[in-house]
Write a protein that binds this DNA or RNA. Structure first.
Lengths: 341, 341
DNA sequence: CTGTTAGCGCCTTCAA
DNA sequence: TTGAAGGCGCTAACAG
């Protein structure tokens, strides 16, 4: 009825292809399954027929019994620019493996538990959770359902679920070294969401290293969340106190950017001469001339790779036990710290 | 066998629930379908049984015959921060309607056509495409399959598919007015990806209004893509020429930020005194103190709403004809332009 | 309003 | 290796 591919009116299913190719439906099914036993000749014939009919297997129907080829991605912090390239990398990697991403936004009224139950309704082959931990009973539920889960950017004590993150304690230590090496003497730490292991570990590493190197004049304030505004306001609060720091380590870059703007625009201080700044992540913004932010880079591409690898390994082999990975961070020196002389 | 919900070993399906509730499977099915005819009493009974068994309908099985409750989202420009809140809003709105997002990254080697064919394999109920147009034959394919499509952030001449965008021509005009009203006399336009209607329309509106108000001393350069780097480099190119502009209108905010950094850091000029800057979008970055960028805001939340509304209307009523919407933009004055006196 | 039954499109035993 | 047949979990006629 049209040009090119014979646009079929009705649905084209295995039955139509089988008919056209003069074979059985199971032959068609097998032709489309990589690890089914079928002769090259038959497969060719089927594929040819499928081509002319413009047949595509229905993934939903397939997913009922076997793999859905759906990977659930639960995102909890959509406002943090850090997750944009992360999400991009996840979808790319997932697509490379002929699977696709069911993206769930866990920001609003939905909580992690609901989200997990939800994706289960789609029979996802695997589940990625960004920066949030999983209640014990959900871990168990996933285990029963044999759905591999990987948590990105978070570590917990127990290893009943595979977690990929960077070494946040080392990140804090590196930040301390950068600050002290540049000659600052009254550093402060501005924390992210309270209770987040990422933020806590960075704080612990930072303070620990300050103490180890004999620095006693430090302070800590809470930011409350990973956001520009939180960094901005925490910084103002910091300078309302009596002990004004000469360097600040922010729990992440977007907070650091907020803090830098507070320092320059509201407090009228100079970076890096009056105050030195360090963040964590190395988001795109950090490398702009406007911020030129020294930071501890999270190797997010490697983290994504590791996450995907771990996930698909366990999809292929569900009996495999969870295996966590912690990747090293890297210090990136830019103009927000005085040069080391 | 455990605490709380009776963790069932085997799969729990309509059959088990029906058995437990002492009803038929169709009763169970109906209990979970909003617009099925079933007495409140029966539904209660079924729901109770389902609750104790911890039953959840299998969406894939359901999707085979009727709605999959999957909405495909095709994203072409994952690097532009503008799309982060957009994506967040899309997922939120879709989830509000008890559907979920199948996110496809069309950045890499995959093109729109492949992506569309792909989501079709998942029987998506609807399809959202961000900032890319759809080849004619795909429009037809979607029509045949009765899958509603909505294009976000783009307009084309033909109205065979519903498109939601903002008034880019008016945006360009507003930018021209802002620039001229602030007293600049040699404005330039820096374009985005060549051939994009959004960029072209902004340019057309901008230049048109300049001419209408008697300004003849303008110029146009190509940026090539919506990115920080593209804006940065196009700006340097601009100032290598003989005609140095005293104001620049960038095709979008992220380009404008790149341009601002080039102007301040590389060229040593002052904003807004030496050069005035205007962008389009009003991304988060634009309102930071570091950039404080005057811009033409795209009403992205309203655009998302309109997109979702149009999409779900057509899902509910597939015979409805496509209907495009163009929303007004809003000028946002900040420090990157001299104040109007 | 409710139950029975026949598919949806595919995969996967089971024989041949 | 191939084909025939019986599900997978759910929905949608069709009866009652």
């Amino acid at each position: 009825m049209t040009v090119g591919k014979p646009e079929v009116e009705g649905k084209v299913t295995v039955v139509e292809v089988a008919k056209a190719a003069g074979v059985s439906v199971s032959a068609v099914s097998r032709a489309f399954n990589p690890n089914a036993s079928i002769s090259e000749k038959l497969r060719k014939k089927v594929l040819a027929a499928a081509e002319t009919l413009n047949y595509k297997p229905n993934r939903l129907a397939r997913g009922i019994k076997s793999r859905s080829s759906l990977i659930g991605i639960l995102v909890t912090d959509f406002n943090n620019p850090f997750y944009m390239p992360v999400l991009s990398a996840f979808t790319t990697e997932i697509q490379k493996r002929n699977c696709h991403s069911l993206l769930i936004n866990v920001d609003g009224d939905m909580d992690i538990s609901e989200a997990v139950e939800l994706v289960m309704e789609y029979n996802v082959d695997g589940l990625i959770i960004t920066s949030a931990s999983l209640p014990k009973e959900l871990v168990e539920a996933c285990r029963v359902k044999k759905t591999p889960v990987t948590i990105f950017g978070r570590t917990s004590s127990d290893n009943s679920v595979t977690e990929i993150s960077c070494d946040n304690i080392a990140a804090g230590q590196m930040a301390a070294d950068m600050v002290l090496n540049a000659g600052y003497v009254r550093p402060a730490f501005v924390g992210g969401p309270v209770g987040t292991t990422a933020s806590l570990d960075r704080q612990r590493g930072f303070v620990g290293q300050l103490l180890a190197r004999g620095c006693q004049t430090w302070q800590v304030v809470e930011g409350g969340e990973f956001s520009y505004t939180a960094g901005f306001e925490a910084t103002l609060r910091l300078y309302r106190g009596s002990e004004c720091p000469d360097a600040i380590f922010f729990a992440d870059d977007i907070m650091a950017c907020g803090g830098m703007d507070a320092i320059r625009q509201e407090l009228g201080l100079h970076i890096p001469d009056d105050v030195g700044i360090v963040g964590v992540d190395d988001i795109q913004l950090a490398s702009t001339k406007a911020y030129d932010l020294s930071t501890i880079r999270q190797p997010y591409l490697e983290m994504v790779q590791a996450t995907i690898n771990a996930l698909f390994e366990r999809i292929a082999n569900p009996e495999m036990s969870p295996q966590s990975v912690t990747l090293p961070c890297e210090a990136v020196s830019r103009g927000s710290l005085k040069p080391v002389n």
